[in-house]
Write a protein that binds this DNA or RNA. Structure first.
Lengths: 213, 213
DNA sequence: CGTACTTTTGAATCGCATCAAATCTGGTGG
DNA sequence: CCACCAGATTTGATGCGATTCAAAAGTACG
């Protein structure tokens, strides 16, 4: 059960910040798509780090709609769970995944002792805050078209975005039904605001004009 | 220009966690309603702590709508600015306010040295993440009524909520127009889902039934 | 007492959700 | 290799709910 840290570091540079003491406590774990790693309200026992696959933080809202709060395909999951005594969302396994697990008590202890790692962790949280603020901003936009363009601008590079998920999943993240997203993309293409190109296993979206709305 | 820390600590318990070294660098500052403390894109020079008044993190979105990302009436503002070289939102002064300012370089340095304060700061960030996740969840709800009830549940206590802002401002936070919110509140009252009581200078909202939608 | 702002109500319009159904796709097992 | 299946994609029709524009009434504050 030895973990090949070097191999993991190549894929996930975040791992480099992990102190030796934490690495010794890590364990390897495989997860099956469709399962749920943690439920709302349950007590966090481990911190998880995604090496492969995809997890999602989600909540089933009052009326039954699924709300995606975060997609995790690489890196730590649910950083905020470190501080709290209960998960505030479900952690769902979307694809077969491989994760590292760290006992949460030990994690907390090391965070208290290791200043460098503490720094690193704070930076992670701050980044998370920024991402969430962007998402709030996006969800407050009133039309599907605006949300799509906002997403391209804030998540893409120079108006180019490689969509690493299905459009259906993207729709959930944008707070739209998949039908609405399909239609919106179609009209945006027709109006020459964006172009869609099929890359290998992912859709490439490119913004063209400065046209809005 | 001496700051009365004891007086401030009574109102804002967060201040107790501030190490002496940081306190020595603090300065007092009064802000006028309507002004803007920091603009998107500008470089953070100070960390701000709100003693009195109200600041808001906001962004003017693509189509001109104001999006409120955070209201600050007490405590640190824009925690994430600590890590970044530019503000990612405007910091607007809503009411005449009094804030403490801390040179950001020094703030960072002390965070590197003082483990206890670092702990405290991490906890703040984690709380912020949770709040933002709740807001994302709320904004993804499709109807005004659901957002209102979600807000009452997540921000209130036992189905009771003291609204510390105007309904118009609340509407912005909920991603609604003020008209929509007024109408929604009216129908929720009519349907006996909530009651509204006028407290001193604030509206008290109480959820009654388990009725949804 | 006037001004600026919030609160309230009305009417028309628009965009998305919803329900439905057809097609396309990748992956599976025979 | 092909038939088949589950899921994603796509298109259509309809209705609801929020936006929008407008205007009046209420409220706080100097």
């Amino acid at each position: 059960m030895t973990i090949d840290w070097q191999a993991i570091e190549i894929m996930h540079s975040d791992v480099k910040a992990l102190p030796e003491s934490l690495r010794r406590l890590a364990a390897d774990m495989k997860l099956v798509a469709g399962s749920v790693l943690a439920h709302v309200g349950s007590r966090p026992k481990f911190m998880y780090f995604v090496c492969q696959g995809e997890l999602r933080l989600r909540r089933i809202s009052v009326n039954g709609t699924e709300v995606v709060l975060q997609r995790c395909t690489s890196g730590f999951v649910a950083e905020a769970s470190l501080e709290s005594s209960a998960y505030h969302c479900d952690v769902a396994v979307i694809e077969n995944s491989q994760v590292l697990t760290f006992p949460i008590q030990a994690f907390r202890a090391i965070l208290r002792e290791d200043v460098v790692f503490c720094q690193f962790w704070m930076a992670r949280l701050a980044r998370e805050v920024r991402t969430l603020r962007a998402q709030c901003e996006r969800l407050a936009l009133r039309t599907a078209s605006e949300r799509v363009q906002h997403y391209i601008e804030s998540e893409g590079r120079n108006g180019r975005l490689a969509l690493r998920q299905t459009r259906k999943a993207w729709a959930a993240q944008l707070g739209l039904t998949h039908e609405a997203l399909y239609r919106t993309l179609a009209t945006l293409v027709a109006d020459q605001v964006i172009t869609l190109t099929q890359g290998q296993n992912q859709l490439i979206i490119t913004a063209i004009g400065a046209k809005r709305r």
